[in-house]
């Protein structure tokens, strides 16, 4: 059995990694964003949940393939929590896909002020050999 690779989402150092979450992180390491789908009622979740919010049944991970989105809202964090203070300023955005699913991540390549409604593209980032993330690009 292959040894579990130590991975973290974004700037998290959370070591409480479940097998389900590890599977999500390992897919992300391959530049794949996973949603979850309830095995009983087929409800979808992004970001994924191991248990369905509606019927509490187990969910399975499936690749989320939408890449284009619109900026639902944003914030430019100038005064950051202590753990991210060296990274400030940074932009946190909620993007909305055509399906209506939303995702919260950093926008990493802005050259001017963001505007609600502007187009975004989903991208992936390997911050270092353990930290990886999905991100928004303009």
């Amino acid at each position: 059995m292959a040894e579990k690779k130590e991975l973290y989402l974004g700037y998290s150092t959370d070591k409480a990694i479940t097998p389900f979450y590890q599977e999500f992180l390992e897919a992300l390491d391959q530049d794949k964003l996973m949603k979850s789908v309830c095995t009983q009622c087929s409800t979808e979740f992004l970001p994924p949940r191991q248990h369905c919010q509606k019927c509490l049944s187990e969910c399975k991970l499936e690749e989320f393939t939408e890449r284009e989105a619109k900026l639902h809202s944003f914030v430019i964090v100038e005064f950051a929590p202590e753990s991210l203070s060296s990274k400030a300023p940074y932009v946190v955005a909620i993007g909305e896909f055509p399906s209506g699913r939303r995702l919260t991540a950093h926008i990493t390549n802005l050259m001017s002020m963001p505007e609600v409604g502007m187009p975004l593209k989903l991208g992936f980032e390997h911050i270092d050999d353990k930290k990886l993330s999905y991100k928004w690009l303009v």
């Binding site: 973290y8 989402l9 700037y11 998290s12 959370d14 914030v75 940074y90 946190v92 919260t104 991540a105």
Partner: peptide
Amino acid sequence: RWEYPFGIS
């Protein structure tokens, strides 16, 4: 799990 890693104060 999903918000804190992005530094949302």
